[in-house]
Design a protein around this nucleic acid. Sequence first.
RNA 1: GCCCCGUUAGUCUAGCGGUCAGGACACGGCCCUCUCAAGGCUGGGACAGGAGUUCAAUUCUCCUACGGGGCACCA
Length: 536
Amino acid sequence: MPIAVPKHPVRVRIAPSPTGDPHVGTAYIGLFNAAFARSHGGHFVLRIEDTDQKRSTRQSEDAIYRSLRWIGLQWDEGPDVGGAYGPYRQSERSEIYRKHCDLLLSNNTAYRCFCTAERLDRVRAEQRQRKETARYDGFCRTLSREDSDQRADAGQAHVIRLLMPQHGTTIVPDALRGGVEIDNSQIDDQVLLKTDGLPTYHLANVVDDHLMEITHVIRAEEWINSTPKHLHLYAAFGWTPPVFVHMPLLRNADKSKISKRKNPTSLEFYQRSGIMPEAMLNFLSLMGYSRKDAAGNDIEQFSFADLVSDLDLTRISLGGPVFDLEKLKWLNGMYLRALSPGQVAERTFAWYQEDGRHATVGQLVQERVTDFGSFAHHALPFYAGVPEYGLNARYLLVGAASKKKTAVKLNRQQSATLFEDLIARFEALTEWSIPLVEACVRDVCHSCGDQTGANLGDAMMAIRVGTCGRPASPPLFESITAIGRAVVLVRLRQVCTMLGDPRLLAEAIATASQELEAAKQALAQADAAPTAAQSK
RNA sequence: GCCCCGUUAGUCUAGCGGUCAGGACACGGCCCUCUCAAGGCUGGGACAGGAGUUCAAUUCUCCUACGGGGCACCA
């Protein structure tokens, strides 16, 4: 059954939250939204969901624009390009949400709740103790209108909750799954407007989707359980809900929801480590979707235009696809090889120079280079994605490879703590600059030294190898800054997984030492050979 | 714990009652070749398990197992 398309123009949207690095999942959902819009001659809207004031940042928002543009997604309306349905940043629409909340209050589909966070915590704790589903107990549901108005007028802090039916079931129509039946007893009275007067996702998303005339909501599967809330909101407003399409979640190798701990999730990582945007987009298209040729075999390589030309969202397969870097690399190679020699050179050099990074790298490498030819060797750590640690992996254990007699040697766990601390510090930075990077590294090394007695230099060395992949590099803080946050974080997380698994660490070293051993033997045999031949 | 979704090889997928279960990545072998890649050929490898419906189930239904997601004044 094809997806229902209303007579009026198709309008779809993605609504990323600017709370971190631009995520592959955003690109994934954006890709299918954009493709769906194009295939129906519709519009693709980018809306910024920054209602979480604590976590949203402008840097993150800008990074989302940059990364989505890099990968080739084009939105017709958005905060940065305008449009007839603006503003497209939810923080600028507070008044709209408040008014709509008043509407719900006046038609009794929502109510004020004066419960304190402490009370809610207590209730939840009790419910957990009794092994019940933790949910709002409806304490303020029965407040009289007068009482509620009075307390609100008196300025008592409160939220506004949706009055959900407590019995019966709600059927969520999903274009890929048919009707998903969810018992209303599973859903509590969702907060719509927070104490700070800002809406929650649920309210903002419904109001905006309606006001922006969104016809199809193509979003991740994790939303499916909260769709009944949205459906009841549409009903409370007297609006017609859009068509819902819940896409499968991208997965880690262990099948859990894709996460930065187990995968590079930042689009910036892929850009910085040299993946071509068209290959990335193609690869994302392969996640849950497939196209086939006349013979019925799968087509692996196709463009966004190809995808649009015969898109059928109902062909999305629902098993969560594992994000497999191996196949991405292969696909990227395919794209690279399809380029003309001139284009390869052009694109490669353009990539080396992106953001003017070659100037920075040149400066850093200058002092240790004797000729142009040796530039590439020294510059490698600045352009690669994840380094091959090989024998250098021994440096990742703080002090293990230290030449100092007095060196304190830390175990895997202690070393991992150093790296984990550094990751946390780097993640918390809102600005990526040499002094801030330096402060993070120094702090982390000092506290490591304080706790374990490890030598400062040894801790720094571990970080140098962890970030640069080698024990010799240009000045550490400058290098880390130049490599870039996205790539550095991926490398550090990789180091943590290696330190977390003795086999991984041993493997990295074993492979390298085997080669070394083989080389020694070959040399010994070669030395012995002439003598043997002569003796014949 | 409760609820929802899912399940074809290590991975991405085709399949929509009768197929030698097709393709791709990865892996092995061979060819090409000054090396390494690339390319070509080739090999091994999958319908989670059990009931039922049916002349016939990978395909439809139910149960079990396993995986995932949700259960916030985060999105």
